[in-house]
Simulated assay, not measured.
Amino acid sequence: MEFYGTLGDACWERETLEALFRAGMTGARLNLSHTTLEACAPLLEERFWPAARQAGVEAKLIVDLQGPELRVGTLKEPVSLAEGAEVLLGAGGIPVPAAALAAARTGDEISLDDSALLLTVVEERPDALLCQVERGGLLKSRKSMAILGVQPDTPALTEEDRRNLDWAARCGVTDVLQPFVRGAEDLAVLRGALAERGLERVRVMAKIENQLGIEKLDEIIDASDVICIARGDLGNSMPLWELPAAQKGIAARCRTAGRSFFVVTQLLWSMEQRAVPTRAEVCDIYNAVLDGSDALMLTGETAAGRYPVQAMEYLVKTARSALSTGRAG
């Protein structure tokens, strides 16, 4: 079974990376919505790969592209959004993609940072959206954004994605995560871009993050190498209490098709701040393994959390405990 962490400030030190590998990590994700492969190349060469070799791990390096995902732009500093206040998205306010401005309509709900914050559009302007804050909090740069129930018209790959793929071979990329896959066509675009760069052997991982991905799951399974059940934005696309059934359903369809899959998002979310996980979190991990997940991935727990190595230890030990009891057939 594979165990992935996400690279970030909390784990970039070589000693921490080596400790993660010794704890059982078999590979790492690099989120290219926040950086570029070119910028990370020195850190990968000087820290990531040496740490893996020192720990005796033949590591995988997964890059998570931007794809059709919506994110807020770069902010000079975090913005505090107070419940009941009005906030402007677009010109003169918080920068957001043009596709979001074109797609949103008055009355639409917009979730930010995996639904940590929620806005309602109260007025459409030529180059902005006036919104009311329904659920407030602190908004940081490059956080995820979703217009609930709306699919904006965005390309499968951005120009930045293509520039990142230019660096994939020299950085040792083994897998590519394609966000918000809407059907086999998105994956065909990605495979074409990989083939143009001589990267046919790189595995294509399809992230299921919305209702369209579930509707087109059969063709996505056929067109991908691995399915990623990405519960953050997937949970934005439905009432949250329906997410467990959606996860179970995707897992069952992957098992039937013989397609590898893995689960990600908030597996050990509390460990970003606490040294010990909740009982619910370890049960979540255990059940994902029993459902047949071939891998598990931590995100903020290793990228920005206070206890990255401890989180990996709990992930690996809990999963191995589940493996010892037997899994779904």
Rank of each mutant, 00 (worst) to 15 (best):
R253K: 12
R125N: 12
R253Y: 08
E18C: 11
R203I: 01
W241Y: 15
T16M: 01
S33D: 04
V204M: 14
P68T: 04
A288D: 14
I285L: 15
V72F: 09
I250A: 01
T299I: 07
L101K: 04
K216C: 09
S144Q: 07
A28C: 08
L234K: 13
D9M: 11
A169K: 05
A280G: 12
V202W: 15
E196R: 15
R231V: 00
L165N: 02
R163V: 02
L194H: 12
T36P: 13
V72H: 13
E185D: 10
R53I: 07
A146D: 11
A188D: 04
W269G: 08
A99Y: 01
A59W: 13
E13N: 08
R274M: 05
G249I: 03
L44Y: 03
D284I: 01
T278F: 15
C171W: 07
A102P: 12
R231S: 08
Q54V: 08
L165Q: 03
G27T: 07
Q211N: 04
R47C: 08
E69A: 09
F48C: 09
I214A: 04
I208F: 11
T6V: 05
R201G: 10
I94L: 05
D218I: 09
A23L: 12
I214Y: 07
T318H: 14
A102C: 09
A328D: 08
A275F: 04
Q151N: 10
A100K: 02
G213N: 04
L32N: 04
G232R: 13
R201P: 11
L138M: 13
A311W: 00
L88F: 00
A102K: 15
G107T: 09
